[in-house]
Design a protein around this nucleic acid. Structure first.
Lengths: 343, 343
DNA sequence: TTGAAAGCGCTAACAA
DNA sequence: TTGTTAGCGCTTTCAA
């Protein structure tokens, strides 16, 4: 009646390691989590036993007992948008080599899905959360505010963010693009935007504001679509723009895909860029600078946002309350290339 | 001495729900997992109690007790490579609305990291695993073979895959590109490839084979780099190619980024595409068809691979052994556009 | 520095 | 259809 025999699962447990090493289970646990508080001798025996048995801790048991995990939840609105690909890269660079691992939730630009994902992540007791928007549902926002872990909101600057934030001033960035176009001497600029999520809406509003201030706002030159951004969509939107407002002499694109598409459409139509049509892009992903003509753009610090967000989060996890600078503005940069020029 | 009082964590548990509903804990558990085996009456009381208390199950406890999770591990070699962005999209489409969620591991084209990630995922007792390569380390492969969950290998067709597979014949796809170029009448084709992982190596070998068969192989026209693929790298590689082999009359690019870069470089140099230089791309991401001239390419079924992989995996998880077609070849398609033409 | 005892919140296995 | 019992593998707490 060997009650204690392992019936199935040949996977070794902490107790197996303890037996092998001739110590107690808790000593093994401590050897793994804080080796510095275990005696040299015990530590060596335990490490030896772990190696011998090929022991791997069970994260579920650990999570249950300690009420916390090593998971960092990352909520993004899209996986295909290159902008977030760069953010992801920064985040992964930052967790590499730590005990944490990232779990991505894709809410597909739906605040309701985002709320569901927040709930789902929270139920897993994550070590921390990174969210890509400031536009949660009220319930979603409340969940974040009461989250029992640090939270970093990324992409925008924000005074009323839930906890910490890393981003840049998206509105000022768009204004810089609009001002640049005006300073080049373009007088009838259009604005192209896809995927009209709240952030895109705000950027459009910022464009309107600057365009109006320069007395060059015409609603007929604002072309938007709720559909996702893509190069094809950029071509399509420019086509619509030119049909509605042939006088257009410049376009600001809310995204690089769109700008590349607009450029290609202009080339197809033998419209000279930047002479007949100026193009200014937003974000400045790698390909933008290699187009012919090279695209002028407002460059946004996407990868750095990912890096800093994870760094803040890890610091805050290790020592709650230790992060002094809780709201980081990484700025943006206007990069003037060939697709815009003084006239 | 109320021993049972909850000291901290105000989060309600299964037992709290059970008490509230006037049933046992296991009935609550069943109501959540398989409501159909619980009486109408009990179910209603439990649902009511769950709502009232705002109960959310603790996945860690569930994982520990049941020895399995709802996590699906997805191992990719890169997060920035558009190819995998499309695969991801397909995968996420497939898990949407199921009880599973995807956890991504990025092994950065390092088989050793991949092995570590496999180990790490496995320690979490995932419901299933999707891996993007056939090139594991021996230890990595062994881990997959002995994995206590279904495994799908994606991207290539394979007879000796670990468990299930979804992909297409990468070598045949490259051969199709090479044949197409030959049939167009180009006689001195080059080959551009970045990130020389094992798969890229194999594709290069396939190109060599066809080029040799058509008597148009010249090693001087094969330009590769271990660095990551990018549009800028495409420009750079074409530059090198033309410096080494000015007679080149076509290039096959191992990737769309490279092809776009090569096209841009050709345009910069006033080389007429497709007349002086034919360009054939690989994968055919969305942007390829919108370039001017539009890129001819071998289109690969990336999103569909993601969709099918997750579908197979879920079917196999629900009913082990139930999946009949365990190796799916999704094929590829040669799409002839403007960047190649008969001469 | 080490250990014993007592759970963490859930589910498997069996019994009623 | 429902309940009882006994853990899952780890960490917390307290004591030695």
């Amino acid at each position: 009646m060997a009650r204690k025999s392992k019936i199935q699962s040949d996977r070794p447990t902490l107790v197996d390691v303890a037996r092998e090493a001739g110590v107690s289970a808790i000593t093994v646990s401590r050897t793994i989590r804080s080796p510095e508080i275990v005696s040299e001798r015990a530590r060596r025996k335990v490490e030896e036993a772990i190696r011998k048995l090929g022991y791997t801790p069970d994260p579920a048991a650990s999570a249950l007992a300690s009420r916390s995990t090593s998971t960092i939840g990352l909520l993004v609105p899209s996986l295909t948008n290159n902008v977030f690909a760069d953010v992801l890269r920064g985040v992964y660079e930052g967790v590499e080599g730590t005990r944490f691992f990232v779990q991505i939730g894709n809410y597909r630009y739906s605040a309701l899905s985002e709320e569901g994902l927040i709930r789902n992540f929270l139920s897993q007791r994550p070590a921390g959360l990174i969210v890509s928007s400031m536009d949660q549902t009220p319930a979603g926002r409340k969940l974040l505010e009461e989250a029992p872990c640090p939270v970093v909101q990324i992409m925008e600057t924000s005074v009323d963010s839930v906890d910490m934030s890393v981003g840049f001033d998206q509105l000022e960035a768009v204004r810089a693009a609009a001002r640049h176009v005006a300073e080049c001497g373009y007088r009838r600029p259009g604005f192209l935007s896809a995927r009209m999520d709240p952030r895109a809406q705000r950027r459009l509003a910022a464009f309107r504001e600057v365009a109006a201030a320069h007395d060059m706002l015409d609603e007929a030159r604002i072309i938007t679509t709720p559909q996702p951004s893509s190069v094809g969509m950029g071509r399509h939107l420019l086509e619509q723009l030119l049909a509605r407002a042939p006088e257009t002499d410049a376009v600001i694109c809310n995204n690089d895909d769109l700008a590349v598409g607009a450029l290609m459409e202009a080339i197809r139509r033998n419209i000279a860029v930047p002479e007949q049509l100026g193009i200014c892009s937003y974000n400045d992903i790698e390909m933008a600078r290699h187009m012919v003509p090279a695209l002028s753009a407002v460059a946004t610090p996407r990868r750095e946002i990912g890096r800093r967000a994870i760094a803040m989060l890890l610091a805050e996890i290790e020592a709650p309350g230790s992060v002094r600078e809780r709201h980081i503005d990484l700025g943006y940069e206007l990069v003037v290339r060939e697709s815009t020029s003084s006239r």
